[in-house]
Nucleic acid binder design. Structure first.
Length: 272
DNA sequence: AACGGCACCTGGTCGC
DNA sequence: TGCGACCAGGTGCCGT
């Protein structure tokens, strides 16, 4: 589910309610996420104050007094702020209860997400250190993308979804960015022209920024921290539109597989 | 080193 | 109505 815009939307939704609050209790109902939640996490976090909430790649980082909590939403996770204590539903795996009476509740049917803590600076965490630049910062430029693509035989779609190259671009936005840039998804990365790199870097930034403005993409069950869905789905040009006419030229959108993920594209607008 | 493929897990949908 | 096959927003790890 959550790519960068959905995680950013979650961050913005929860931050005002939890920053400055003290954690009164962490209650974990199911420890079986992608990696088992450490037994010591709840006691470690209790009574610490949440000083700030950050996003790095698709990780949410809650900075505490003596370290940080890292939360990843996996494929099907969401995190919401609750102002009372409704009975947990199936797949509501943990709550972070706050001293002001609110709580953050994590819901994740597929349990691909993660909940971890670290006392090291987060940048040094094993899952964070090898990540590429944030796409919406000046660290991600067309020159950088162009250089990364040189001599690479992999498909351009695979490259832009590789978090070691740039973070946050998942399957939906990879499809959309390639469409906006007019690039065939299976083009060999090393064959990208300079002009194409310029268009693609710009398209990645544009599609992510616009999706954040819209509160993310809700296909099925994504909700932001306030429990509301995102509205970017109505702006999708190709993702989920196989067999439908291209919104630009009318050609029927085609679908193929890329590294076991579905790729939708327009043969006219994104010629091979 | 780079690349492709697989696994992890639940639930929804589709065809028989 | 039931059942199996297949698919889904991510990503670490494995073998080649």
């Amino acid at each position: 589910m959550p790519e960068l815009p959905e995680v950013e939307t979650t961050k913005r939704g929860i931050a005002p309610h939890i920053e400055g609050q003290q954690i009164s209790r962490v209650s974990i109902r199911d420890f079986r996420l992608r990696w088992p939640i450490e037994e010591s996490l709840a006691a470690w976090a209790q009574d610490q104050t949440i000083h700030s909430v950050e996003r790095r790649s698709k990780y949410l980082i809650l900075n505490l007094d003596s370290g940080a909590l890292l939360i990843h939403l996996g494929m099907s996770g969401n995190l919401r702020v609750l102002f009372d204590d409704p009975t947990p539903n199936k797949h509501d795996h943990f709550d972070i209860e706050l001293s002001n009476g609110t709580r953050l509740r994590y819901h994740d049917p597929r349990r691909f997400g993660a909940f971890m803590h670290t006392v090291e600076p987060v940048e040094q965490h094993a899952l964070i250190t090898h990540l590429g630049p944030e796409p919406l910062t000046d660290a991600f430029t067309s020159d950088y993308l162009y250089q990364c693509s040189r001599k690479r035989k992999t498909k351009i779609k695979t490259l832009i979804m590789d978090a070691k190259m740039v973070v946050g671009v998942g399957n939906i936005y990879a499809n959309e960015a390639l469409f906006l840039a007019g690039i065939y998804p299976h083009k060999q990365a090393g064959r990208l022209t300079k002009a194409e790199a310029v268009a693609l870097a710009e398209s990645i930034k544009q599609v992510l920024a616009k999706a954040i403005e819209q509160g993310g993409t809700t296909l099925k069950d994504f909700v932001g921290g306030d429990g509301k869905p995102g509205y970017f789905a109505q702006s999708l040009n190709v993702y989920g539109r196989a067999g439908l006419p291209c919104l630009v030229c009318g050609t029927l959108i085609k679908e193929m597989r890329t590294a076991n993920r579905s790729t939708c594209y327009c043969t006219q607008c994104q010629p091979s």
